[in-house]
Design a protein around this nucleic acid. Structure first.
Lengths: 361, 361
DNA sequence: TTGTACGCGTTATCAA
DNA sequence: TTGATAACGCGTACAA
């Protein structure tokens, strides 16, 4: 209702027969087409098209008439029809495996806003981690003639390539097993290094590592990063090796207690996730250690609710998955434009310092 | 030009000039069209169409030939073209306001799987809570000729209606302010009743309510449900009134301590969210109360990571937002089919009992 | 049973 | 500068 009377009255008067009174405007009217605009402006359809698309070979006065008519009819070009002749849908598919997971969402958000929605819309499908369903969705997306595809894995480990697909594909979060594909992942090893270097910088010397499921590649990578950072300072992990278990608070608590028994002088813990870190913090408090005065703690994920609700607030490595999603979208656009990338690209996280790793003092 | 030489080179041999050797198949070939299929099968395009669409008026042997040809060419009908003539895109828009929020995701998942993806795909857009951007996205969705629209609000409060839109709209999670629209929301009052009735059933008599932001309608509704349930049993809220503050653990801890001072006999707390409930649990433990032996606790949300990580595991009301999303999709499909609903429909949650509210014993 | 003709809404080409 | 014509890929009415 902004401008006034725009929409329906395309046919002023002509509609005659059906309704009778001019009262309730026939809003069942279908959206205005270019032909409606052309007719109203008194030009041919192609001319109307050129005028609205800002092509130079059209008289100014004509263009004005057409634009006017378009505005009056609230004309919006039918994207499907445009796509049909242009042979592109202006659409990309987002094939995810775990919408419920916390990880695919930021990636998805980043991707979604990297494409200006005007030009490229996002078709969402969640395969629920089922390969069959994924194939199903893939076919459906191709039937819709998506111009490209982003595949978001459910966990940060290598996954099966989609294989030959007639449109460009970018893998995000979980890399493809085919090195010819383009994949974007977080630098987990770098995350481990980042965390431990920070702990060392605050003067810690006895640094343990408690992390989650040893089956995850990210678990191993983060541990390796931690080990390397310590090695550069001539140190080793407290306890001699990382304590790997599950991505849960409970594991964090239990592992912390064993580690304290083995290394009473412990003055820092790098936890493999914020959830694990929560467990670490709780166990430390209950064992009478003060954080950060006695022991500093750093997690991974920067899961807001968890990190800021912790006591004290948790320092953590933010993997910046939203940025990862944005970059994925950029790579995909480049590929759609004819400049594909290939191989695995690792994106760095960034440290978010809160109270749990403040320097002693 | 009608039948003779289809597009280019997909047909064996003729491509000649460019490549040279017949080695690598020209996979840059555009997807097969119905015309390609018809040509290969030696029939006309409409016949091929009928054959593939299972229409009866086609000889069996012909149908076989066509299906065969389609399979050989890996033919997939172009949904855009189908939609163009059918005047429907087979697409619905999902207009959300806070992808990062935990609440819109389940709704979105439910909606996504209620539409069989084959027939209806979901176009995702996140307005980031910005009304301008929402208008933008709305226009873009309409340009893509979505057949319907689901609007997922960012918090469980009344939001502005989109107003007149040429396709059916369903509001989920946050209801529209226009009673003529169709809205689906959680029954927050019912959730409060559910929680308190459960606490009473386990023998509790001194029940407090600690909840979040008093500006939320859901906060008031849950409190009212709690009050009503107590009243039915001839009781009042411990402390005389609900303690409202913020959706944080910290608030949960602080409020719990005040409540214990005011009501030393407290034997149950209904927390307005799982996060608040976590704070309640921690404070109770630190004040020396055992859960559930001394005090039982029930939350709202069934936020897995939070509820199962709690000590003890947290009983909670699951609002079943995924189901809400499914129902929203069903209502939308009905509306698209010509049978619109209107008004606000409230969907019940369900109680998930864990250790924190086990009967004393 | 099969094919011809046409429409869906838009853009590109080329002649006027 | 403008418009007739064709094409994009498919479905449907109707004639053969």
């Amino acid at each position: 209702m902004t401008t006034g009377d725009a929409p329906q009255g395309r046919d002023d008067g002509t509609s005659g027969g059906s309704g009778g009174r001019p009262g309730p405007p026939p809003d069942d009217a279908r959206p205005a087409t270019l032909r409606d605009v052309a007719t109203l402006a008194g030009v041919s359809v192609p001319t109307a098209s050129k005028a609205l698309n800002g092509r130079p070979d059209v008289r100014e006065s004509t263009r004005r008439r057409v634009e006017d008519a378009a505005a009056r009819l609230d004309f919006t070009p039918n994207t499907l029809a445009q796509g049909l002749s242009a042979r592109r849908s202006g659409t990309v598919g987002l094939l995810t495996s775990d919408l419920d997971g916390r990880f695919s969402i930021p990636v998805l958000m980043g991707a979604e806003d990297a494409f200006g929605f005007e030009r490229t819309a996002v078709l969402l499908c969640d395969a629920r981690g089922d390969a069959i369903r994924e194939q199903h969705h893939l076919r459906a997306l191709l039937a819709r003639r998506v111009d490209g595809l982003i595949v978001v894995g459910e966990r940060p480990d290598v996954r099966a390539s989609l294989g030959r697909v007639p449109v460009p594909v970018v893998y995000a979060y979980a890399p493809s097993d085919d090195p010819a594909d383009c994949s974007l992942v977080s630098d987990h090893e770098g995350a481990g290094r980042l965390a431990v270097e920070h702990l060392l910088a605050t003067g810690r010397r006895c640094v343990g590592h408690i992390s989650g499921d040893p089956g995850y590649g990210a678990t191993r990578d983060r541990a390796e990063g931690a080990r390397a950072a310590l090695a550069s300072a001539g140190l080793e992990l407290a306890g001699g090796r990382p304590l790997l278990g599950a991505w849960s608070e409970e594991w964090g608590r239990g592992a912390t207690r064993s580690l304290l028994r083995a290394e009473p002088g412990l003055d820092a813990v790098f936890a493999g996730s914020d959830q694990v870190a929560r467990g670490v913090l709780d166990a430390l408090r209950e064992e009478g250690r003060r954080v950060p005065d006695d022991v500093a703690v750093v997690g991974v994920d920067n899961w807001e609710a968890v990190a800021t609700g912790a006591r004290p607030a948790l320092s953590t490595v933010d993997l910046d998955l939203q940025h990862l999603g944005r970059v994925a979208a950029q790579r995909l656009q480049a590929a759609m434009g004819g400049s594909p990338s290939r191989g695995v690209e690792r994106l760095p996280g960034r440290l978010v310092v809160r109270a749990s790793s403040a320097p002693r003092g």
